[in-house]
Simulated assay, not measured.
Amino acid sequence: MTTSDRMTVFDRALVRRRRDRAVPNFSDHSFLFDEVAERLADRLEDVLRPFPLALDVGCHDGAMGRVLAGRKGIERLIACDLAPGFARAARGLAADEEFLPFAPNSFDLVVSNLSLHWVNDLPGALLQMRQILKPDGFFCGAMLGGDTLIELRRCLYEAEMAVSGGVSPRVSPFAEIKDAGGLLQRAGFALPVVDSDTLTVTYADAFALMRELRGMAESNAVLARRKIPATRGLLFDAARRYAELYAEPDGRIPVTFQILYLAGWSPHDSQQQPLKPGSGEIPLGQALKNGNGSLS
């Protein structure tokens, strides 16, 4: 990747500070990380091979390490996180996802649980993770997708338009599923697979949701955000709209978290290879005929 390819969207120093501040009370807000760690581990159970040496990139408080303990033949798991506080909590080391301090061909497995959506150079980070895998090593990660917080995004947008007559980024942008597979291919992963699911959580009101996001260290960190806090009027208007548009019969509001799951292999000669164009032994017309199809 050249310098001109790089996009700087997030304030990474702010992300690090917020993660460090979240450490003492993170267990009160970590349900999403714990749930997705379990789902990532379930996906790994479908891979019929052991992973003696594994790396957890963006470990937070070590949820992946706890879930993977004693599973998949993992003899050693190294945890790292952008925030030194989280690195200490997970008994790992402080390391930036964009500048991983590991030698090529080091790991059998790299996992990442809800951290990569804060990376500016996502193609570069994925490339580094592929490079530090041994040949035929496996990457499995989860990140927040484009439908995450879609309700909050709408209500903040409409409230700011009404109160200020203009808008600024109030919710961080997230990757779309249609782009994720291309990112894996661009990073050189073989046999890339991307899928998603949606988790819906309810809160008493929009203010409870905002407190949860702060506790998760998932508040807006876009460089283009307004540097002054949102006014009380804007926040109350957004909360009112949220309740009017989305509240359930019991008065609680639903919140969408879309999770993208990315998986791929470090290339190896033993892996299944796609046929070269024109190398098929059966003509297309014959294949369609055998399958009771027809050309039109």
Rank of each mutant, 00 (worst) to 15 (best):
G141I: 03
R130T: 10
G141Y: 00
T148I: 01
C155N: 02
G137Q: 03
L133T: 08
T148R: 00
L156S: 10
E151I: 11
R154P: 02
L127D: 01
L149C: 09
D147L: 01
G141M: 00
G141K: 00
I132Y: 02
G137M: 06
F139R: 05
R153M: 11
D147E: 08
G137F: 01
C155L: 02
F139D: 09
P135C: 03
Y157V: 05
Q128A: 15
G146Q: 07
E151M: 04
L156G: 05
D136R: 07
L156E: 11
L149I: 12
G145N: 04
L156W: 00
D147T: 03
L127M: 09
E151H: 09
Y157A: 14
Q131S: 15
Y157I: 04
P135Q: 04
Q131E: 15
G141C: 06
L133I: 07
R130D: 03
Q128N: 09
P135I: 01
C140T: 05
G146R: 04
T148E: 04
L152T: 13
Y157W: 12
K134L: 12
L144D: 02
L127A: 12
E151G: 06
T148L: 03
M129K: 12
G146H: 07
Q128P: 13
L149R: 05
L144C: 05
G137V: 03
R130M: 08
L152R: 11
Y157S: 11
F139K: 05
L133D: 08
M143V: 10
Q128F: 10
Y157G: 13
G141W: 01
L156R: 03
G141A: 11
L144T: 11
L144P: 06
P135A: 07
G137S: 09
K134D: 07
D136P: 02
G141T: 07
D147C: 03
L144M: 12
G146W: 00
I150F: 07
L133S: 06
P135E: 02
M143F: 02
L127W: 04
R130Y: 06
K134S: 09
T148H: 00
L156V: 10
D136K: 02
Q128D: 15
L133K: 00
I150L: 11
G141Q: 01
M129V: 15
M143C: 14
I150K: 13
Q131R: 15
L149K: 09
G137A: 02
Q131V: 15
M129P: 09
T148C: 02
M143P: 14
A142D: 10
F138A: 12
P135S: 08
E158M: 10
M129Q: 15
I132T: 12
F139S: 11
Q128L: 13
L152V: 15
C155S: 12
R154S: 14
Y157Q: 14
E151Q: 12
F139M: 13
F139N: 04
E151K: 06
